[in-house]
Structure formats: C-alpha cells, structure tokens
Write a protein that binds this DNA or RNA. Structure first.
Length: 592
RNA sequence: CGGGGUGUGGCGCAGUUGGAAGCGCGCCGCGUUUGGGACGCGGAGGUCGACGGUUCAAGUCCGUCCACCCCGACCA
C-alpha cells in the first residue's frame, strides 16, 4: 500500500476528548475516528489489524471444530420475547419499529438467534456435539461509553455457541475454549489471565473472564500469588477474620448525635469498625409470578467490610438492584444513618454470614441520634437470608490457601459461559436422544470483542513515539521508507525503493510504502506512530554502499542489508518475529 | 440518572469592559530544502454546538436545549 493514497492522516496532537493512551495513539496514528459517543469508524489501518485479529479467532475456532456462519444484526422482537429478555433487558437494548409497526431489536448478543435456528435445524443427537460461531456487530446502548475502543456501544464480537447432548459434552467444549482463548490472546501477544466470574444475566453456573491487567481496566480482580486463586471481585470469596467471641451483653441505647457514618461512629465510641454493623438499603427488582416487583432489602455487613452487590443480587435471586431512596427507607420504619435490623417489618433482611458470629455489635436504633450497643444476632434480630455478601478487598485472605490476595484492575477481553439449557428450554430447542427422549440442547457461549482486543494491544505496546504493534496484528509487516528527495536527481533512490516495494509485495510481504514527498523526519515519525514492526529505509546514504537500512520498531539498532539480499532477509526477520510470538504459546491447565 | 467539565476552520487552542473572528499544526499553489515532525511567498477553509432573549451592536450577557469528555451509578 502506498501511503500517498492511504486514507489515514496522522495527527500531531490527539483530540482533547481522547484521554487514555490507546485511544490517543489509535486516533493519532490514523487507525480510528470517532463518529459519536461509543461509535467509531475503523480506518484502513485498523481494519487490517482487526481482520488479522479476526482471522486468528477463526483459525482457533476452526481448530476446535467450529463452523463459521453469520446471524443477523436485526431481529424480530418475538425471539427476544420468547426468552423473556425483551422485558428483562432495559434501555441497553436497541429497539425500533419497522415500517409495519413491528417491534425490532438490534442484537446485543446472539443466544436468541442461535436457539431460533437450532430449534428448527437440530433434531437428532446424531447432529451433536456442534460448535458454531460468527463474527458480527453488536449494539449495546451503554449508559457510559468510555476509554476509546475499550468500552463502546457498537462493536464487533466473535461469539461462539457450543451445542451438546449433555453436560459432559459441554464440559469438554468449554475446556477446549478455555485453551483456544489463551491461544488467541497469545497469538495477539496480549497477556491475559482467566478468572472466575459472575454468570450475570446469561444464566448458567460456570463462567470465566479473560482479563488484560491494566490500571485503566474497569473490573477489580482478586489474585492469590501463593496458590493461583483468581476471581472477579463480583464473586471473589475470602476468609473472614472473625470477631473475638464474647458473651452477649445487655442491649442498651446510647446517644450518638450526628454520627451517621461507620467511621464517625467508631471513633466517637472508641471501638474498632469491626464492632459495628453496617446497614445498606437497596431496592431489588424481583421476578414474581405476577410479574416484576420492587422490594426493599436491608443488607447488613460488619462495619469494617463493604457490601458486594453482585453477591447480594445472586443471594436474592433479584434481577437488579438500585440504591433505595431515603423516603423508601423511611417508609419501612428505618431511619437512614441510624438504621437498625431491630424491629423492622415488610423488608427482606440479608445478613452477611459473619454477622451471627460477631457478638455485641453497635447498630442503629432506628431513632435519630441513637444507636444500640450490644446487638446480637438471634436475640435482637433475625434475617431472611444469611450468606456471604461481603466484598473482598486487597490484602484479604485467599479462600483456598489463606494467603494475602492482591486486588488489581483488568479489562475484560473475553469470556466463556456454561449456559446449560436455559435458552433451549425457553424456546423448546430440543433434540431426540439415542434413548428416544426429547431433551433440550445443552449450550455454552463464548465471546471476544475484536475492537477491545485491538485497544488493549495498543494500550500494552507503545512508547513515547507511538504504537509498537506485534507482527501478528500489525496492519502491515514492513514499513518501507523512501528518502529520495530532490538530491536524488537521477531517481536512483526512488527507483530502488519502487523496485523493493514490487519485489517484497511479489514475495508475499505486506508492505506499507511511504512514497510521499515528505521530509525524512515526517516519514520516520509517522512510521514510529503507526508502529509497523519492521522498517526498511531506502536512502542515498546506505544505497551508496549498496545497501538499505533495516530497523525493528521495538529496538533502536539499525542494520544495513545488501540490496540483493533484502527480500530474503526481510522474510527471515518477519518469520522470526512471528516465531517469537508463536513459540510462546503454551498449553494451560484448565481449572473448572 | 447524579456530580464535574468542554463546545470557536480537519486537529490543538486564544479571543480583554459587548464594538470588523484570530494563532499554531494540517490543507492548496509556486520556489528553496531533504537521514528524525524544514523554510519563504501567496491562498482556501468558520451559520463561534442549536434555539430563544437582552442590546444600536452578542463568540462574549441571560434562558432553554443538544453534543462530547471525566467521576459515580449501571453493565453479557
């Protein structure tokens, strides 16, 4: 490709609304342009990188038996009503009416489309197991797109769906994906870890997320360096430090004016925060037989801990939670800031499993300005649910080995879910098994966003001059710079560069050829910004000695290669760059 | 949805007490230059986010709305 005709201008300064590095660099280098919040155009450079990423995904999916197809982006609402997600999903789903006034949906994922097709196409156990996938656009009207390509509203995703006769089959396909995903990220040279994750609205019972560890990530993970335990904070467990056992003392009411926070209260009383009970009120959307209903929930964790809303949501079996408003809290008889589990009605009380083992706590008295001392579970109050609802934090003890866990931030670049039969049952996607019985197809779903992956790679590989793209995903393999200029009166430099461009291209090398009439500084800076791994420079300096200059983007040394050997040597260098990446791929141990 | 911020040429920005819309980069033409974002001369390009109001006069003051960014809420 000649840069003189490439639709991609580099920018000396990034747009002011690009805050994170990958966003700034991808815009400055001319890979992407923003059209609206969370909606981007992939320019030719990005498109080439994305195609390479997607071809890696194809290859790894095909290797585990996947067959590529393409399911529609626009769906009739019926298939979403059939699984209940038409009602269940909120404004994040794109909806519109077609010309005949029928409800239509912009796909945010494709489980519905999958079961719609297999309902008709899969009839016999002989057709299973099967793995289907596609690489398709999704629309999710996220309330807050951010961080360039990391979190967008319109994006492309490789999503695959495993179809099996039974759970053993699912386990096998799931384990294959577990490995295939490490291969995909490895081939893109992106370091990731797999962590256990919440199954969320997808249902099912096992899920992993692939995380690229980065301070700009949106998820918090807890990792144990001692034994390898890793989990998203949403579900991370930990060993709780129990309070010292003591005899329940007599409950007493004490005046605590203006002490509305745990920190204030503990300081005022001269006690550790672990001797207090923290009250959190939420409104939980619950699905009941009559439909959806909002219920006030009173969650209690020990004062030195934080509530984990995902754990609470799962404990309640709720669709979603939102913070309760003061008037909703007041309606239950509780007093915000002085709330107490003692003597409340019409409210679901959920207490963390540490609370019953924590005697003589200080809790609110449901009276402005007063707390109770020596509140004890069982004697003074009871709960509807007792379970783990506390959030793990940096330094907490690993649930498996007790070692101190680290809390780190990560970007979710992929995930795998054991869906089970939830979707197939919902729409009656069944097959006839060998024993003659009709059974629902057992499903798994597996996703990787290609744009987010590109952004993560850009975030990981760069320096002050620009991007440093791994060769497997770089838009081109070679950046050929021609430095003829007006001193090149007989056009020798220009001719040598043109010939090299032709020869390399003929040899199957992907070349970005800077044939523009620009100064050397401009060309070198643009080359560094775009980040193609190997730069070849044709200039009079080396040409006088019968050579051209080669430089790897990630190194500072330059070498001179005799003109006649350039094509062969270039192919060698490129091969070694690929090998460096592919040799590092390794088999991982699957821990279900 | 709550809090904060920003909207002036493709990008980055300035614009005073309200009084003729500017600068740098980029772009076009001509010439000089050519191994790390060169220089000269000459150009093109803006309904100042939108609408309404105040005023003789609004980029500037007032109001409403919109867009975009950040923090939070939310999120397979």
């Amino acid at each position: 490709m000649r840069m003189s005709s490439l639709l991609s201008q580099t920018l000396r300064e990034a747009p002011s609304d690009a805050e994170i590095l990958s966003h700034q660099l991808l815009v400055r280098a001319g890979y992407i342009r923003q059209l609206a919040a969370g909606i981007f155009t992939s320019m030719p450079l990005a498109k080439r990188s994305l195609t390479k990423i997607e071809n890696i995904m194809r290859d790894e999916m095909n290797k585990i038996g996947g067959q590529e197809m393409s399911m529609p982006v626009v769906h009739p609402a019926e298939i979403w009503k059939a699984t209940g997600r038409w009602e269940k999903v909120g404004p994040e789903m794109g909806r519109f009416l077609d010309r005949n006034g029928r409800d239509m949906v912009l796909a945010m994922t494709h489980e519905e489309a999958v079961v719609a097709i297999i309902k008709d196409e899969i009839q016999s156990y002989r057709q299973l197991p099967m793995l289907i996938y596609h690489i398709q656009t999704k629309w999710r009207d996220d309330p807050r797109p951010r961080a360039g390509l990391i979190r967008v509203r319109e994006f492309t995703m490789k999503d695959s769906y495993s179809l099996d006769r039974d759970w053993e089959g699912l386990d096998l396909q799931y384990a294959r994906h577990y490995q295939a995903y490490f291969n995909i990220f490895g081939r893109c040279k992106l370091p990731v870890i797999a962590v256990k994750s919440d199954v969320g609205m997808m249902g099912g019972n096992v899920a992993h997320e692939y995380m690229y560890l980065s301070p700009m990530g949106e998820d918090t993970l807890l990792l144990c360096d001692a034994c390898g335990y890793s989990a998203n904070r949403q579900i991370a467990e930990f060993q709780k430090v129990k309070s010292p056992q003591e005899e329940p003392a007599e409950r007493e009411k004490i005046a605590t004016p203006e002490m509305k926070t745990i920190a204030d209260l503990a300081e005022y009383m001269g006690i550790p925060e672990s001797k207090t009970a923290k009250a959190v009120f939420v409104m939980a959307a619950m699905q009941t037989a009559e439909g959806e209903e909002e219920k006030l929930v009173f969650a209690i964790v020990r004062g030195d801990m934080d509530l984990n809303e995902t754990k609470l949501t799962n404990a309640l079996g709720a669709k979603s939670l939102r913070p309760a408003e003061e008037k909703e809290i007041a309606a239950s008889g509780a007093v915000p800031g002085y709330a107490s589990p003692v003597g409340l009605k019409d409210i679901i009380v959920v207490v963390d499993d540490l609370i019953p083992e924590s005697p003589n706590l200080v809790a609110g008295a449901n009276q402005e300005g007063y707390h109770f001392k020596n509140v004890n579970y069982g004697r003074d109050f009871e709960a509807d649910i007792i379970t783990d609802i506390a959030a793990a934090r940096d330094g907490d003890a690993c649930p498996d080995c007790g070692g101190a866990m680290r809390a780190v931030r990560g970007v979710e670049v992929g995930n795998i879910f054991k869906l089970g039969t939830w979707y197939s049952e919902a729409v009656g996607a069944t097959f006839q098994d060998a024993d003659g019985e009709e059974k629902p197809v057992v499903m798994g779903s597996y996703g990787i966003g290609s744009g987010r992956l590109l952004a993560s790679i850009a975030e990981e590989y760069n320096d002050k001059y620009g991007l440093i793209m791994p060769i497997t995903v770089a838009p081109y393999e070679v950046h050929l710079v021609e430095l003829g200029g007006s001193k090149d009166e007989r056009g020798e430099v220009k001719q040598a560069a043109e010939k090299l461009y032709q020869d390399l291209t003929a040899a199957g090398v992907e070349v970005l050829y800077d044939d523009r009439d620009e100064s050397p500084g401009v060309k070198f800076n643009d080359a560094d910004l775009i980040g193609v791994p190997l730069r070849l420079t044709v200039g009079s300096r080396a040409l006088k000695e019968g050579g051209i200059e080669a430089k790897l983007r990630h190194e500072s040394e330059k070498i001179q290669i005799p003109v006649g050997e350039v094509v062969a040597r270039t192919r060698e260098i490129i091969k070694s760059l690929y090998d460096d990446i592919l040799d590092k791929l390794e088999d991982v141990e699957f821990e279900g």
